[in-house]
């Protein structure tokens, strides 16, 4: 009899545990749709400052400023009429690039883009970003365990962070 009730309790407990686990999984999935993308670095993209974003994305905020390395941000404009789409171009003589982060210092969330490279990909990389107000646009390249940083001032006429 004692054995029997013990078995019963175990079964009930097991059922309760799996049910609550399921409920948890469902709740987390439903309440936080961005958690579906577990690999999307939420902290980095929601960071309010450049330093925080880099820390969250690349692990350490310390950056090598290496003048030997040439790469550039923003081919045409140091002055853009419309901040809603500012063309940028990243070029570099570095090889073995692992990751590139593009940040706009004055945007509410500075991190604009993060690129995960494989050896099959080559620069230049071009895209369009939004710039809220006159701001530094910063590109950080992570290559061979080091971070290289360059920046460029971009002035905008109409802020583009709608």
């Amino acid at each position: 009899m004692a054995d029997n009730s013990f078995e019963q309790r175990r079964a009930i407990l097991k059922g309760a545990i799996s049910a609550s686990t399921l409920a948890l999984v469902a709740a987390s999935g439903l309440l936080l749709p961005q958690r579906v993308l577990a690999h999307w670095p939420t902290d980095a993209f929601n960071a309010k400052t450049v330093e925080d974003a880099l820390l969250a994305l690349l692990g350490h905020a310390e950056v090598v400023d290496d003048s030997v390395v040439q790469f550039k941000v923003g081919t045409p404009p140091s002055y853009a009429v419309n901040g809603a789409s500012v063309p940028i171009e990243i070029q570099s003589s570095l090889s073995d690039i692992e990751r590139i982060a593009i940040l706009v210092e004055k945007n509410p969330n500075p991190l604009a883009m993060s690129l995960d490279f494989t050896p099959a990909v080559k620069l230049p990389f071009k895209s369009m970003i939004k710039i809220a107000e006159d701001s530094l646009v910063i590109a950080v390249i992570s290559a061979g365990g080091k971070l290289y940083r360059t920046s460029r001032m971009v002035e905008v006429d109409i802020g583009g962070c709608a």
């Binding site: 099959a120 080559k122 230049p124 710039i131």
Partner: peptide
């Protein structure tokens, strides 16, 4: 290639890159 975007990517996003 993996591109992760934040809100600062422009409307109708455009990308261009090279593959070896």
């Amino acid at each position: 290639l993996t591109i992760k975007c934040g809100t600062a990517t422009a409307r109708n996003p455009y990308f261009s890159f090279q593959l070896v």
